[in-house]
Nucleic acid binder design. Structure first.
Lengths: 336, 336
DNA sequence: GTGATGATGGTTAGCGGTAACTTCCGGGAG
DNA sequence: CTCCCGGAAGTTACCGCTAACCATCATCAC
């Protein structure tokens, strides 16, 4: 029985070399204490010498476990997700899990495709951004029998584990801060308008209605947000509603772009126009004036996700539930 | 032979339902034209009804192909990589490949771990950021027998395919632009100091030496770059070298942070201090003044990577080679 | 009528691992 | 001197899928 010509080294190759069977090699590599010291050392030496690459596809197939978890994020350029990722990764790595990432581009269809792919690779868990998925994706997830985390926003009907914050409440709290400071014509500037942006906008609207103020000053676009877009959209708003007093931008990038536009127009912030963003990214502290924002506990969200996931992977069952990790309104110089 | 209790639906389940063998189901799903229309439709219906999730681990194991490619990036929060990713993804998707992402955190050890993981899952190709890898990683890659792309920077000794730009030449060109405009005390401000930052710095140094200018004004840190850090480090530089005339920041984030710091100090840019960044991200156009930078063809890099990869996956052999996609120095208001 | 042909579907034998059970062996208790 | 026990390694079977080859049957040219 000649070995295959492919350069790929298998457990059998190591076994042949050492003069044992492949199951012993498998054990030596995974459960060292089950193999005698002398033999284990010979196996490890042979393995290193031959340049063995474990075939996870085969391992996952045989054992049903892959020691990896997939994280699906909508955007690679949005710093929000990198903080969450870091929190998750750190927690998982300590337990010997690998984090694999998929990019959905804010499309639930692409999300469905990635869920299919990663489940097909036998990942042990899945973390999704958001709580909206295609029907088919939800079916896949329910059948898959692996822990699933939905994050960022909260939902009353979680698929499994849900960790995030109340985006609507946060949007409302920020808007109420504007109102408390005496602003009355408070606009909303939104880009991308993914579900979370919509929830924040709903919070803005609710706060205004509760205070009996106009919800007229609202400009949104499905385009992805950017500094440039923030500036352009602010320009449109000022042209349309010159009496605008404050603008709640649905994220910090837009807010910074709006601030830059004000600087270009020599429009004093917050005297002539107050601004606020959302998320509490690095940039809000760097600008002059600093930007008001809602600080979201992204790192903490990631850590909690890792904890919950590991508990489930360790066999602890639990009912579907939501965890609200809160937020903090931070008043920067941009609202006075 | 009772079915397993696990909810997972297999080809066999569909086959039983339809009354054929599983290979026929496999064919109906992968090569529809090889199965009669009537049968195929029944199989597709049964597949949908049962909620079949193909097991890619098994498929990859049996066929040696997975129709997926892994991209390993150092940082999720750096917009540089998101552009490259988009270019690659678009090209690959059209050909039916999935792009999987791994996060290395600028660590070649973590990169090695991910190479091992993804090769173990049987990915058909691998895209790496940078040209420096661990010895073991290079061995793995050589043995793997799949196309490998190294990107961003160029190397005279590519493992396989190398697509990027000459970071040193770019750093040099930008510095020469400073010199041509009459600046003489030109500093370098660098964070993270990964290999590419080092190459840019080498370019800065080379340009200064060639012009017989001092390379004294240099401040670097291994910390990750951020707006805040850009401001802080600029502060240190100004304190140490008050006569500084210009600063080349190793990326746009730092440059923007430095610009914000100047605004806070009411230091006129570029009259009192000229600034430049690197990469040509969105923010350089948004600030007042706009920031000088080197625009890198990231999107194009991604597209070329996808092309080359698909050619190789389609069976076209090729020798290891490098492709230089160039760069463009963009003079913003920050250098006058 | 007889093959040759092509379309369609089945059979067999793995891919590279791992779980679960079995065998073998040395040593301590009775 | 047995017997039992536990550690160490081997056997067997199978995870879910696919490649490669084989069987069947209708069609068609000669």
């Amino acid at each position: 029985m000649p070995r295959r010509t492919s350069g790929r080294v298998t457990l059998q190759d190591i076994a042949d070399r050492v003069g044992v069977t492949k199951i012993t090699v498998s054990r030596a590599l995974r459960e060292p204490q089950r193999v005698s010291l002398a033999l284990r050392q010979r196996i490890e030496a042979a393995s290193a010498e031959l340049g063995y690459i474990p075939n996870h596809a085969a391992g996952a197939l045989a054992s049903g476990r892959s020691h990896s978890v997939a994280l699906l994020i909508p955007s690679l350029s949005n710093a929000v997700f990198s903080d969450i990722q870091r929190g998750i990764e750190e927690g998982l790595r300590a337990a010997g899990y690998q984090l694999l990432i998929g990019h959905t581009g804010y499309s639930i269809l692409e999300e469905e495709r990635l869920i299919d792919t990663y489940l097909g690779y036998g990942v042990d868990g899945l973390v999704l951004s958001g709580t909206r998925h295609t029907e088919h994706a939800e079916r896949l997830l329910r059948r898959a029998g692996v822990p699933v985390v939905e994050t960022l926003e909260l939902t009353p009907t979680p698929l499994d584990i849900n960790v995030g914050l109340d985006q609507t409440a946060a949007g409302r709290a920020l808007t109420e801060t504007f109102i408390a400071r005496g602003y009355r014509r408070i606009g909303f500037l939104g880009a991308r308008m993914d579900h979370r942006a919509q929830l924040r906008m709903a919070g803005w609207e609710a706060a205004l209605r509760a205070a009996d103020l106009s919800t007229e000053y609202c400009l949104t676009t499905p385009q992805p947000s950017s500094y440039r877009l923030g500036g352009e959209m602010l320009g449109s708003m000022l042209q349309r509603w010159p009496a605008l007093e404050a603008v709640f931008c649905c994220n910090d990038d837009l807010a910074a772009g709006a601030l830059f536009e004000c600087q270009r127009r020599r429009l004093a912030v917050p005297e002539a126009l107050a601004l606020a963003g959302f998320n509490g990214l690095d940039i809000v502290e760097a600008t002059t004036p600093t930007l008001a924002t809602v600080v979201t506990p992204r790192r903490r969200i990631g850590e909690v996700i890792a904890e919950r996931l590991l508990a489930r992977l360790g066999g602890q069952p639990c009912r579907p539930h939501s965890e609200d990790l809160g937020f903090e309104v931070r008043c920067g110089g941009s609202i006075g």
